[in-house]
């Protein structure tokens, strides 16, 4: 049940970022969050770079979920 909750939250947060429903998050999507999250543009850039583990400029659900797991469990899960 807990696993499903985490999966659900991951999807929910991913969609909150990917408002155009592209299936990935780009830097522009991340910068847009600046209007409603208490994070600076620089911090959001940092979040994007940290989550974009392969550095291709696109954040997939997999990368996003890996970052969320790292946050939840306090370590990076590959």
């Amino acid at each position: 049940v807990e696993k499903n909750t985490i999966l659900g939250k991951t999807h929910e947060f991913f969609q909150m970022c990917d408002i155009e429903n592209k299936g990935f998050i780009n830097r522009r999507d991340m910068q847009r969050l600046n209007s409603w999250l208490p994070l600076s543009a620089e911090e959001l850039e940092n979040v994007f770079d940290t989550l974009d583990s392969d550095g291709n400029g696109f954040l997939t659900l997999e990368e996003f979920s890996s970052g969320f797991s790292a946050f939840l469990f306090g370590r990076r899960i590959s």
């Binding site: 994070l39 940092n46 940290t50």
Partner: peptide, 29 residues
Amino acid sequence: DPNMKAGAANEGVLANFFNSLLSKKTGSP
């Protein structure tokens, strides 16, 4: 080690980001 420091800072920013998302979610009706 500067790399370790940068890593720790990133973890902090990440935690901040997800905490904000969580609070936005629970804060909205």
